[in-house]
């Protein structure tokens, strides 16, 4: 078996007396598409935050690309190739769409490439990425003038600008129409085809099933299933967690 790109072992996180994550372990192989599902409050976002460094886990270890990430701030993890999009889009509201792209290009992408891009290279790369996500016509708009789906595209484009090895898409499709979901899903598939591993956190089962090669289920901070999507959704524990008994 090839060495995993992301290797999470025994991750635990408490908020006061509330156990948000309890001894969660999971692996992501290079180029893999992993779906992460679970009811609201099951700890999905906490897991994402611990992996990306926004939160500090109490116990356990996160390894990425052969390196232990514990203690590294989020920007250092981004430099190693771990990118994330936020559940609620968080654009830089005083910058145009174009200049929003400039931030990861000036920082993460520059560190990852080992050099600073020239101004015309930044423009080219920005336009290339905006074309991929279909935002090129709105390059000079302010984030406040964007629709929900465009805002999510910007969020993904910004994550892509960092040239990641692994992209964690935290509910990138929540609240979108069917056609828009397909739009974003196609985008993620194209990214994956370029060799980027993707963790998709999503409630829309149709999208998760179509996208994932493997499915991980979290319930109340515990991992209760991990395997092929078709098997996982037949799992008794999963059915019980989602439908009650």
């Amino acid at each position: 078996m090839i060495a995993p790109l992301l290797h999470v072992t025994g991750l635990s996180k408490r908020f006061g007396g509330f156990v948000a994550l309890n001894d969660v372990s999971l692996q992501v192989a290079p180029g893999e598409r992993l779906g992460l599902i679970g009811p609201n409050g099951s700890g999905k976002s906490t897991l994402v935050n611990c992996m990306s460094g926004t939160l500090v886990n109490d116990r356990g270890r996160v390894q990425f690309d052969g390196r232990v990430l514990d203690g590294l701030p989020p920007h250092r993890r981004a430099y190693l190739g771990l990118a994330r999009s936020f559940q609620l889009p968080r654009p830089f509201s005083s910058l145009s769409v174009r200049d929003n792209m400039r931030i990861p290009l000036l920082y993460t992408a520059a560190v990852r490439a080992g050099r600073q891009r020239a101004e015309n290279e930044i423009r080219e790369r920005t336009e290339e990425l905006l074309r991929v996500v279909g935002l090129i016509d709105k390059a000079d708009a302010r984030p406040i003038d964007l629709t929900q789906v465009d805002m999510r595209k910007l969020e993904l484009a910004r994550a892509m600008a960092a040239d990641p090895k692994l992209l964690i898409a935290d509910e990138a499709m929540a609240g979108l129409s069917n056609a828009e979901v397909d739009d974003i899903l196609g985008l993620l598939m194209r990214l994956n085809a370029q060799g980027i591993s993707i963790i998709l956190i999503e409630h829309i089962m149709k999208a998760v099933m179509a996208f994932s090669q493997r499915l991980v289920v979290l319930v109340s901070g515990n991992k209760i299933a991990d395997g092929a999507p078709s098997e996982v959704i037949r799992n008794d524990h999963v059915v019980r967690a989602y439908l009650g008994q």
Binding site: S52, P74, P91, F92, L95, D99, I103, P104, T108, A159
Partner: peptide, 20 residues
Amino acid sequence: FGFTAIRDDELAAEAAGVPT
């Protein structure tokens, strides 16, 4: 640009690689 990113959204700035 890093400063502006911090002002607009510090969490997103970190995620984009800004050493805030």
